[in-house]
Write a protein that binds this DNA or RNA. Sequence first.
DNA 1: CAACGTTGATAAAACGGTTTCTCACCCAGC
DNA 2: GCTGGGTGAGAAACCGTTTTATCAACGTTG
Lengths: 346, 346
Amino acid sequence: MAKAERIRIYDVARVAGVSVATASKALNDTGRMTEQTRDRVKQTAAALGFRPNAMARALTQQRSFTIGLLTNDTYGRFTLPVMAGVAEALVDQGVSVFLCGIEDDAALGQIHVDAMRDKQVDGIIAAGKRIDRRLPVDLSNLAIPVVYVFTEGPPDAITLVSDDEQGAREAVEWLVQLGRKRVVHITGPASFASVKARETAYRDVVGEGAQVLNGPWSEAWGHEAVARLWDAEGPHPDGIFCGNDQIARGVVDALRERGVDVPTDVSVVGFDNWEIVAAATRPPLSSVDMNLKEMGREAGRLILQLAEGKAVSAGIRKLPCKLLVRQSCGSALRASHSNGEARLGI
Amino acid sequence: MAKAERIRIYDVARVAGVSVATASKALNDTGRMTEQTRDRVKQTAAALGFRPNAMARALTQQRSFTIGLLTNDTYGRFTLPVMAGVAEALVDQGVSVFLCGIEDDAALGQIHVDAMRDKQVDGIIAAGKRIDRRLPVDLSNLAIPVVYVFTEGPPDAITLVSDDEQGAREAVEWLVQLGRKRVVHITGPASFASVKARETAYRDVVGEGAQVLNGPWSEAWGHEAVARLWDAEGPHPDGIFCGNDQIARGVVDALRERGVDVPTDVSVVGFDNWEIVAAATRPPLSSVDMNLKEMGREAGRLILQLAEGKAVSAGIRKLPCKLLVRQSCGSALRASHSNGEARLGI
DNA sequence: CAACGTTGATAAAACGGTTTCTCACCCAGC
DNA sequence: GCTGGGTGAGAAACCGTTTTATCAACGTTG
């Protein structure tokens, strides 16, 4: 097949025997004309395989049907599901996504923002990997709408984050419901806002006897924390709520090596529901899913609304997490399992 | 700061006291004029903060300075580094990247391809997660250039893949150099082309006594394979070359649980150099890195050349892998370590 | 001094659509 | 028969840039 010249609306008009103006109006369902004329134009357009040139269209209308996704999460663990959600929400509106990875490089960020402006994006979604850090770019007085996802934005911005407190609460309550009496919390560095939020919920549910161990976000820390707990005097924990799945995996491995059975002796729950870690753990890890894809979808919907000129109320929106029960916390109360799942759904 | 109206080249021309045509030529370093005039225009443009409207520009020139990246690798493990490389190669040429995740959905793929055409992308990079599978879209007779990365393309296409055979060879030769006499190969399903390529290289280096175990790409399979090998009669392996890092991690864990020391008793090498797995393994895993980011860069360079109308010879290009030595294969020959690294570099 | 090539700059025509205005036409009402 | 309002369609302007064609002014040359 030869590289056919692209069909222009001019061609459609000529074949259909109308003017370009009429053709345009027919295809966009605007203007006034006979239903007959409109159909004829539409049919010839279809027959010719006409597709409007998005550039030309963007030039007159003030929309490019393009948005920019700015992120500093190169590894993609958090951003990838968000991206998928955004794309999903936008694809059937004909909106495409520019992906801009900026690491933590302010200069690179500026380059990408400028490029986006030049390309007339209808909006920008700024996605991060940490709720309490900003991206190294200033998007505060752009002429285009901005939505912040999983990152900190200016006070009056539209921001989407996960509800860490709620997620943690679900997890700890689940452990308590299973009958666990001594639940400890092994988590990341106290400097993270999400660590604080999760800890707050944990302390709230557990009350007296709460015990929190802070360390790096690594498997190694999970090992070490278990060592500390089990080498200490007194009764050992029978439930462990971990700050993320990597720590949880370290914990589970360490327990196995000590001959402590999970979930019979100890129930373990992680956070993030990072499939690749949670599923490979033996036994597979229960974990709190932050619904990042849904966050992406919501971001897509919002940016679309804004692009269409609709008003969206500013502020921070916390989206609910969902506990995903696998085998690492046991199924003593299997009867109430599905019940719990349903109750915990978003 | 008010949402300033965008400055058009018209404004620059007026302020600089020249015609729009002159302004355009001044800024693009084309046409003829006094050096003085050119400077004056450039300076007023800078002073006004003029940035050309990319849409309008794309309409006249035949380039949008935009390319599309089509991928079915939603999880992003392979595509993410590729994307980073592509973006890196293109950003300073002012080229932006449309990201299009299509899963394995042909209809979705078609939608994205159509959208890209409408938006006049200068080229498409099709990136996959498996060398011997095609993306569910037909890009063969588009009017725009296409580069295939880490996926199978049509026979006469420009395709970039990793040189699995060379990578495997480096790994196995390294094990042999360390003095390992009984090296086995635990790998993925035989249906994968990359499995075959790696196996070929392995057999080539080991010769007599080669032993290959095929299974799924999972940690669990690593465990099981070790069980098979160590429960069998006769001498145990002293070197294991694994088909990917997940299997390798399973292998290392299983060996530790059996009291077999890595790397003292057995040297282990993985494949993919998936940081998150390789680094968390105890001890950290030596692994073959496929240089995916460099592959992305190369893809970016190629698509750029094609977009500029330059000819690029078709065919499959195998890009070299690089062995990354960590602790899982020992350092008996530490003296030749850096030597080896240097020799194995790309 | 006329013819001519250069030079610096401009007007105007693209690019491919959308949108605003204008207008011919038809029919109803007086 | 004249006016007026609604209807269907087209001419033309516009979006913001690049590019081609044109042109005046100037210096050179025969």
